[in-house]
Design a protein around this nucleic acid. Structure first.
Length: 681
DNA sequence: CACACTTTGTC
DNA sequence: ACAAAGTGT
C-alpha cells in the first residue's frame, strides 16, 4: 500500500538476494523498487573492460530473474549522473526511502555521500549497510584507535575481533513490488558486436549470477579447498577458488564465505588435519587481502593513483610503449611471463601467482609505470577490481609499508621452474615453444642451437629473445633507485627551505599516466628513455578478441621488432575508450565522508577529514564534466584546482621516509596520509 | 656440529 | 626488514 511510500533498493556491486542487508531492509519496510543504474562514464578512466562488462550483464540478468521469482523485477537505468537518476526514480515511484550497501572506493564514497545529501534534501530517508566486508573499515583499529598500516597487524586484529562478523541473512521469501508504472527501465548495452563475438567463449568457463556463485563456493569448499595450500604454487588455476569475479560483483557474500570456511576449519582442526587447517588459513588470508584492499582504499582514497609511500613518486619510470606492448602481447622473451600474458589476453583470468610474476616483471625488469599495468589489469581481468588491483600493484611496486623490497628482482626463469616445473603451462599458452624440452622451456635463450632447431624455434624470429636481460635490469634498477633517492632527498631539502611545491608539483598525483595521456606526463616526471613522440595519443587498451588473438600474435612475431611504430600500435587492440572525461570536480570533505557511512562516533580518520572542499561542485556536477583537461591528467575526483596546492604541501609533509620502509614505525600513519594539512604534519 | 652466509617468502 | 629454512665450511 502506498501509505508509507515504497523503498528503493539500489543495487551496485551486491548483485545477490541472499545476505543482502539493503534488500532485506527494503523488504521489511514494505514495497520495494529494485534499481540498477549503469553510469560507466562516471568511472572516468576506469570504464569497465570488456570481460567485466560481460560478467555484469549476465549477473544482472540472473538477479532480475531471481527478483521476478520473488514478485518484482529489476529496474535498469542508463545514466551519466547516478544521483540524478536516483532522484528521477524517487520522483517517478513516490519512494520515501533508499537503501543501499556500502562501497569503499573513493569514487563511490563521494558519489554515495552526494546521493545521501541530495535525497535527504528531498525528504527521502537513506540508509546504507555493510554487505561487502566482514567488518567495516572504521571498526578495525590498533590500540590507539588508528588504522593499521600493515596487513599482518590488520589481519591479526581481524581474526581476534571481540565479536564475530554478522551472520549471513537469508534471502527474502517474497517481495512486494513498488509501483513502477511510471518508471520504465532503460535497455542497458554492455557490449558491442565485436565484443559479443569475443565474449562468446566466456560462457563455457564461467557462470555469472549469485546462485551460480553459491554453487562455485560449495564446490570449492568441498573440493579444492583442502589442497589449497599444497597447490597454490602451481601456475594452473584449477586449484584456486575461482570466486573472485563472483565476489567482485557481490554475487557472493564474504560473510557467508567466511562462515562456511570456518566450519570446515573447525572440522579439520578436530580431525587433526593439519594440511586442511593450513589451507583454510591461507584461503582466509586471501579473503583478508580483499578486505584489506577495501580498508586501504577507505583510509587512503588515492591508493589507485599514488604510491602509498612517497619515494616512488621520484622513481624514473621507463616510459617505453614498445616494452608495454611486448608485455601485453606476451612477447618479452621470458616464457612464464609470456604465457601468463597470453592467458590473460585470451581468457581474462590469471592465477594469483602468475599475476605476481607478470606484474613484478613489469615493474622491476621493464620498470614501466605501475599504474599502466594496473590499468591493463583493470581492462582485461574478468575479476577486475580496483581496490584489489591497487593493493596488488602497490605491493609489487614496493610502495606499501609491508611490501616487498624494491631492489629485489624475481627471475622468471627460476619462478618458471617453481610454478611450472614441467613446462605444461608454458606449452599451453606458447604453442611456438611446445616442442622445446623442459630443460630449456623456461630459458630458451640458453638452449643449444640444435635443440632450438629441432623444436622449430628461431629466437628473435618466432619467439623473441629476452627483451631485457636480468643482469641489465638489475643494474638499471640500481641506477633508477639511486636516482630516486637523490631526487627524494633534493625534494626534502627544497621543502625544508620553503621552496614549496617547486619539485613536488602535481607530479605526485601523476606518477605516470596511462599512455592515452602520456604527453602531459612527460613534463612532470623524471623520465628516461622515451623513444616515442610525446604527441601520440593512445587508445585505451583492452583485450583483443579471443579468436583473433593468436593469429595476431603470430602475425606480428614475424616482424619481431620490439620498437613498434606509432601507426602499428595505434591499430587499436580495441574500441576507443568511450569516455575520457573524468569526474574531475567531484569533491568531498570531512563532513561528507564522515556522514557517508556512519554516524557520529568516528573521529579517528585523518584521511578523510582532510580532503578538500569545493562547495560548488555538487551542484555543477549534474551538468557533466567540469574540469576536463584535454589530454587529460589522471582522473582526480577530489581536489579542486584551488585547493590543490594546499594538499600538496600536506602530501610532501606526509611522505618523508628516506631510508627503507618505515624504519620508524611510529610515524607510519603520517607517512601514509595523503591529505595531511601542513599544520597537522 | 656449530657457524656464517644465501635463499625464500612475506601482501 | 626479517625470520625461517637451506647451504657451505
Amino acid at each position: 500500500m502506498s501509505g508509507g511510500g515504497c523503498s528503493i533498493v539500489w543495487f551496485r556491486r551486491d548483485l545477490r538476494i541472499e545476505d543482502n542487508p539493503a534488500l532485506s531492509a527494503g523488504v521489511r519496510a514494505g514495497a520495494v523498487v529494485a534499481v540498477f543504474i549503469w553510469a560507466p562514464e562516471e568511472e572516468g578512466q576506469y570504464y569497465p573492460g570488456r570481460v567485466s562488462r560481460w560478467w555484469l550483464k549476465h549477473s544482472l540478468a540472473h538477479l532480475d530473474s531471481s527478483l521476478r521469482n520473488l514478485g518484482t523485477h529489476l529496474i535498469t537505468k542508463r545514466s551519466t549522473d547516478t544521483v540524478f537518476s536516483l532522484l528521477e526514480v524517487v520522483k517517478s515511484t513516490g519512494a520515501t526511502q533508499l537503501f543501499f550497501n556500502h562501497l569503499y572506493d573513493s569514487l563511490s564514497l563521494i558519489r554515495d555521500h552526494r546521493a545521501k545529501e541530495v535525497l535527504n534534501a528531498q525528504g527521502v530517508t537513506v540508509r546504507s549497510f555493510n554487505a561487502d566486508l566482514l567488518y567495516e573499515p572504521w571498526d578495525v583499529n590498533d590500540a590507539h584507535g588508528r588504522p593499521f598500516t600493515t596487513f599482518a597487524a590488520f589481519w591479526e586484529r581481524y581474526l581476534s575481533m571481540p565479536y564475530d562478523p554478522e551472520s549471513p541473512l537469508l534471502p527474502p521469501k517474497r517481495i512486494i513490488p513498488g509501483d513502477v508504472s511510471r518508471c520504465p527501465s532503460d535497455t542497458l548495452v554492455f557490449e558491442n558486436e565485436a565484443e559479443k563475438a569475443s565474449n562468446a567463449l566466456l560462457a563455457r568457463a564461467w557462470s555469472p549470477g549469485w546462485s551460480n556463485a553459491n554453487k562455485a563456493l560449495t564446490a570449492f569448499i568441498n573440493g579444492p579447498l583442502i589442497e589449497y595450500s599444497k597447490n597454490r604454487r602451481k601456475a594452473d588455476s584449477a586449484t584456486t577458488s575461482l570466486l573472485s569475479p563472483h565476489l567482485h560483483f557481490g554475487e557472493l557474500s564474504v560473510k557467508k564465505v567466511f562462515h562456511l570456511v570456518r566450519i570446515k576449519q573447525v572440522l579439520w582442526a578436530n580431525e587433526g588435519n593439519m594440511a586442511g587447517e593450513e589451507s583454510v588459513n591461507l584461503f582466509l588470508k586471501s579473503i583478508g587481502l580483499r578486505e584489506y584492499s577495501r580498508y586501504i582504499c577507505f583510509n587512503h582514497p588515492y591508493s589507485h593513483e599514488r604510491p602509498l609511500l612517497g619515494h616512488l613518486k621520484f622513481f624514473p619510470w621507463v616510459v617505453n610503449e614498445g616494452y608495454f606492448k611486448a608485455w601485453r602481447q606476451g612477447r618479452t622473451g621470458y616464457p612464464l611471463v609470456d604465457a601468463g600474458m597470453r592467458e590473460l589476453w585470451a581468457t581474462g583470468w590469471l592465477h594469483d601467482r602468475i599475476r605476481v610474476v607478470v606484474s613484478s616483471f613489469f615493474v622491476k625488469v621493464l620498470q614501466l609505470p605501475w599504474r599502466w599495468g594496473m590499468k591493463y589489469f583493470w581492462d582485461t581481468l574478468l575479476d577486475a577490481d580496483l581496490e584489489s588491483d591497487a593493493l596488488g600493484w602497490q605491493y609489487i611496486s614496493g610502495t606499501l609499508p609491508d611490501g616487498r623490497e624494491l631492489d629485489r628482482i624475481d627471475n622468471p626463469q627460476f619462478e618458471g621452474y617453481k610454478f611450472d616445473p614441467n613446462g605444461e603451462y608454458v606449452r599451453r599458452w606458447l604453442p611456438e615453444l611446445a616442442r622445446l624440452p623442459t630443460e630449456w622451456i623456461h630459458h630458451p635463450w640458453n638452449a643449444p642451437e640444435s635443440v632450438l632447431q629441432a623444436a622449430g624455434i628461431e629466437l628473435g624470429s618466432n619467439y623473441p629473445l629476452p627483451i631485457v636481460g636480468i643482469d641489465a635490469a638489475k643494474n638499471r634498477l640500481q641506477e633508477a633507485l639511486s636516482e630516486m633517492w637523490q631526487l627524494e632527498a633534493a625534494s626534502r631539502v627544497a621543502m625544508e627551505n620553503g621552496t614549496e611545491e617547486g619539485l613536488g608539483d602535481s607530479s605526485e598525483s601523476v606518477p605516470a599516466a596511462f599512455p592515452q595521456d602520456m604527453q602531459i606526463e612527460e613534463t612532470h616526471e623524471p623520465v628516461r628513455n622515451n623513444p616515442l613522440p610525446v604527441s601520440r595519443r593512445y587508445q585505451d587498451q583492452m583485450v583483443p578478441s579471443i579468436t583473433s588473438s593468436f593469429v595476431r600474435v603470430e602475425d606480428e612475431e614475424t616482424t619481431s621488432d620490439l620498437r613498434i611504430s606509432a601507426e602499428e600500435s595505434s591499430r587499436a587492440e580495441v574500441p576507443e575508450n568511450v569516455n575520457t572525461q573524468q569526474n574531475a570536480g567531484v569533491t568531498l570533505n570531512e563532513r561528507m565522508l564522515q556522514t557517508a557511512h556512519r554516524s557520529t562516533h568516528i573521529h579517528y580518520n585523518t584521511t578523510m577529514e582532510l580532503i578538500n572542499v569545493a562547495e560548488d561542485s555538487a551542484v555543477e556536477s549534474s551538468s557533466g564534466t567540469r574540469r576536463e583537461r584535454d589530454g587529460g591528467l589522471v582522473p582526480e575526483w577530489s581536489p579542486s584546482a584551488s585547493s590543490y596546492s594546499e594538499q600538496l604541501v600536506g602530501d610532501e609533509n606526509g611522505i618523508t621516509s628516506s631510508s627503507s620502509y618505515l624504519q620508524r614505525h611510529p610515524q607510519s600513519h603520517q607517512l601514509l596520509n595523503w591529505r595531511q594539512l601542513p599544520q597537522t604534519g
